[in-house]
Deep mutational scan, measured.
Amino acid sequence: TTVKVNGTKYKFDTPEEAQKFAKKAADKYNLKVVVDGDDLRVE
């Protein structure tokens, strides 16, 4: 599972880890998590 934040992709072994990271990033930058198929985007 990958998470894309500000054009940078981060790869995670499990969707749970990816979800946690995406949520933290979204909170930090005051953005929202967008599900894109198997991957997540923070925008």
Results as ranks from 00 to 15, higher is better:
1 T>F: 15
2 T>N: 06
2 T>W: 13
2 T>H: 07
2 T>G: 04
2 T>M: 08
2 T>R: 05
2 T>Q: 06
2 T>V: 12
3 V>Q: 00
3 V>A: 01
4 K>H: 15
4 K>Q: 14
4 K>Y: 15
4 K>E: 13
5 V>W: 11
5 V>L: 14
5 V>G: 01
5 V>I: 15
5 V>F: 14
5 V>T: 01
5 V>K: 00
6 N>L: 14
6 N>V: 05
7 G>R: 06
7 G>I: 03
7 G>T: 05
7 G>W: 04
8 T>I: 14
8 T>W: 12
8 T>M: 14
9 K>A: 13
9 K>T: 14
10 Y>G: 01
10 Y>C: 09
10 Y>P: 01
10 Y>F: 10
11 K>L: 11
11 K>I: 14
12 F>P: 01
12 F>W: 01
13 D>S: 13
13 D>A: 13
13 D>K: 12
14 T>V: 03
14 T>L: 04
14 T>M: 03
15 P>Q: 09
15 P>G: 04
16 E>F: 07
16 E>V: 06
16 E>D: 09
16 E>P: 01
17 E>K: 07
17 E>G: 04
17 E>N: 06
17 E>Q: 11
20 K>C: 14
20 K>D: 14
20 K>R: 13
21 F>I: 02
21 F>Y: 04
21 F>W: 10
22 A>Y: 03
22 A>H: 00
22 A>P: 01
22 A>L: 05
23 K>C: 12
23 K>W: 07
24 K>S: 13
24 K>R: 12
24 K>D: 14
24 K>F: 14
25 A>P: 00
25 A>S: 06
25 A>Q: 15
25 A>T: 15
25 A>H: 12
25 A>C: 15
26 A>K: 04
26 A>H: 03
26 A>V: 03
26 A>M: 04
26 A>W: 03
27 D>F: 08
27 D>R: 11
28 K>W: 14
28 K>Q: 10
28 K>S: 07
28 K>N: 07
29 Y>G: 07
29 Y>C: 07
29 Y>T: 05
30 N>E: 08
31 L>A: 13
31 L>R: 05
31 L>K: 06
31 L>Y: 08
33 V>A: 02
33 V>Q: 02
33 V>M: 05
33 V>L: 07
33 V>F: 05
33 V>E: 02
33 V>H: 00
34 V>H: 06
34 V>E: 07
34 V>Y: 10
34 V>K: 06
34 V>G: 03
34 V>Q: 07
35 V>H: 09
35 V>C: 10
36 D>P: 02
36 D>S: 07
36 D>W: 06
37 G>P: 02
38 D>E: 12
38 D>W: 08
38 D>M: 11
38 D>A: 12
38 D>I: 10
38 D>K: 13
39 D>A: 10
40 L>E: 02
40 L>K: 03
41 R>S: 11
41 R>D: 03
41 R>I: 15
41 R>C: 09
42 V>L: 14
42 V>D: 03
43 E>I: 13
43 E>S: 08
43 E>P: 03
